[in-house]
Amino acid sequence: MYPSRFAYEAPSSLDEAIGLLHQGAGEAKVLAGGQSLVPLIKLRFASPELLVDINRLPGLDTLDVAADGSIRVGALVRHRDLERSTDLARVQPVMAAAAPLIADPIVRTRGTLVGSLCHADPQGDWAAAVTAVGGHVVAQGPGGRRTIPIADFVTGPFQNVLAYDEVAVEAVIPAPTGQVAGGFLKLERRVGDFATAGTAVALELTGDRVSRAGIALTGVGSRTIDARAAADSLIGQVLSAQAIAQAADLAAEAAQPNSDHRGSAAYKRHVIHTFVTRILTRITTTSERAA
């Protein structure tokens, strides 16, 4: 596994990194955790001319979990940092549920959430969780900063809206307004495997009723799927068996799975249905509902 020839730069400031990306004119790639990029380069599926290593940039490793429930995840925050955060489970259960299911322990020590969002793998896990909570990505380029809602961030398989000279500097999970609940379930053949199918559910409840809902699916389409109709069907509802069944039906309908060696399309759809049902049913038992 010998990559094509590439140049490597490890700038010490964000401006310098952006400048290098600008000079790279589309042939440069940002290296953060490297857990997706490096295998691609090794296999020569990607052959960037320049790697801009952002690991020395200051200030990007901040994981800020605010008391109000908003979360800022810097571009160098590792999956492991999220997995070990004691605040995450309290403020955003779907994020806490997803964290230990990302890849395997070895990848989690290096890989980053922001990198995972940028990589835009249709089988990625974080994108589903961040979609379910309605997060956004903050990008910085020569022209300054901009905020991109996650729904607009990914444009297709392995494609995002970043300009070639922009760096995604952080992901932001907004503060909820109601009581938070949620969960993340993933079917994998083995720890570290890509999801056969995965489901992220994030709810906010006011009293017994759902005031905000997000349901996102991974592994069942050419990109992360925002199961909007399924989520909307829950708004204003009590989580009755009927409401759960309807949301599960709609989520399964929203899935666009392919049949492959991980399972048939029908099976994957069935798994989505099962996962939505299970997460929502567990929430009704209140044990997983955050304070």
Binding site: L43, V191, D193
Partner: peptide
Amino acid sequence: CIGSNFMDYLLPTAWE
């Protein structure tokens, strides 16, 4: 060939 790398051809880990 489906199984040309260790993401498709699976070796079990201590976890499972």
